[in-house]
Design a protein around this nucleic acid. Structure first.
Length: 359
DNA sequence: GTCCTGTATC
DNA sequence: GATACCGGAC
């Protein structure tokens, strides 16, 4: 697991323009094969059924080219803009030992993304440690795991409905609603399509926005039946077409329902914490991102893909217990030394300092 | 009063 | 960016 930590979505192309550098060139070629084959690895999957979607998209991948000429080498880091078109992210001279470190996977700062924040691995490790001692609500339930004993198609539908119901709702409330739907055999597209909306509303009460969600469940069931043979959409685009399913839930469903990681599931906690840590910014600036979607795109530019799934529960739990929206507990946070926002009055979130208004 | 792993609409 | 959607817990 710890070998080649950063290379999962990186392919390396090494052009040796001069065969004069005998000691290193053959070595580089040998390693190139290994690096290239590391690309395209998909996230561990226990079920191989995923008709419409492609694993491991290239939209976050980087290509690294190392040009060796005489005694000088240049590293060029490219990112794929669209098919066949690349954009140069970074280009600078490097020494041959540097190339060897890269080839062996020792050099964790390479490729030198302009977005990669310093010490991010230490920060992540620190948060993991804090999370293992502190108990967060997110750990107790995990509502999206609902229906894990069901057949695949029904399980996926259960995942979709759980996600829909879980927004702005405590996990145990969501869990109860799912249990009631299950007991009434109302957790398939067919059943929901036939059921009365009022019945659904009563069963899912008191989840947040239950009325709107009951209505959305009916619409979703209809779409799943007419377009997907009662299954759920297997692509991000398809999921986003469903009423009540936005980017956060669409990525969650792709992750949990299809074992297909298309993007990071960014919610309010991930959004807030990444900005506090200075891990994300508006494109081309140092300003904070203003929406979770902007955060997702910024984070995906540098965070290694193997962290894309675990980052969510990690930061959610951290955000629920320590790095809270209002008055974060920087005093007990072990990574405050790395945090540019530590011990500062949080300026951004809903700051309406209407205190001292009393006569 | 404020908080809740959001989404859709204005 | 602001607001409605929803109600319960603290």
């Amino acid at each position: 697991m710890l070998s080649l930590p950063l290379l999962r979505n990186i392919s390396a192309i090494v052009h040796v323009t001069s065969p004069k550098i005998t000691p290193s060139s053959s070595f580089i070629k040998m390693q190139t094969t290994r690096l290239s084959s590391a690309k395209g690895q998909t996230y561990p999957s226990d079920e191989r059924e995923n008709p419409g979607s492609e694993t491991a998209t290239d939209d976050c991948s980087k290509k690294v080219r190392v040009f060796v000429r005489r005694k000088r080498a240049t590293k060029t880091v490219l990112t794929t803009v669209e098919k066949g078109k690349h954009e140069i992210l970074d280009q600078k001279p490097c020494s041959l030992p540097e190339i060897e470190d890269f080839a062996y996977g020792k050099d964790s700062s390479f490729p030198p993304s302009t977005h990669t924040p310093a010490n991010w691995e230490k920060v992540l490790e620190g948060i993991r440690t804090m999370r293992s001692s502190e108990n967060a609500p997110v750990d107790s339930m995990g509502c999206e795991k609902a229906g894990s004993s069901l057949p695949p198609k029904e399980r996926r539908f259960a995942v979709l409905v759980s996600s829909l119901l879980s927004s702005q709702t405590k996990d145990h409330v969501t869990h109860g609603a799912i249990q009631r739907l299950l007991q009434n055999n109302l957790l398939t597209a067919e059943a929901i399509e036939q059921a009365d909306e009022g019945t659904i509303k009563d069963l899912i009460y008191p989840v947040g926005f239950y009325s709107r969600k009951a209505s959305n469940m009916k619409k979703i069931a209809k779409i799943c039946l007419s377009k997907y043979d009662g299954d759920i959409p297997s692509t991000l685009e398809g999921l986003l077409q469903l009423p009540g399913i936005g980017p956060k839930m669409a990525h969650l469903v792709m992750n949990v329902g299809w074992n297909n990681v298309q993007g990071i599931c960014v919610d309010t906690h991930v959004h807030r914490i990444c900005n506090r840590l200075g891990w994300v910014s508006r494109p081309g600036t140092k300003q904070k991102t203003s929406t979770p979607e902007e955060t997702r795109e910024s984070l995906q530019l540098w965070l290694p893909k193997e962290e894309w799934v675990p980052i969510n529960p990690l930061l959610v739990g951290f955000g629920q217990t320590i790095c809270t929206p209002l008055r974060p507990r920087c005093g007990i946070c072990t990574i405050s030394g790395f945090c540019p926002s530590a011990f500062k009055e949080t300026p951004s979130p809903s700051s309406t300092p209407k205190k001292s208004q009393r006569s």
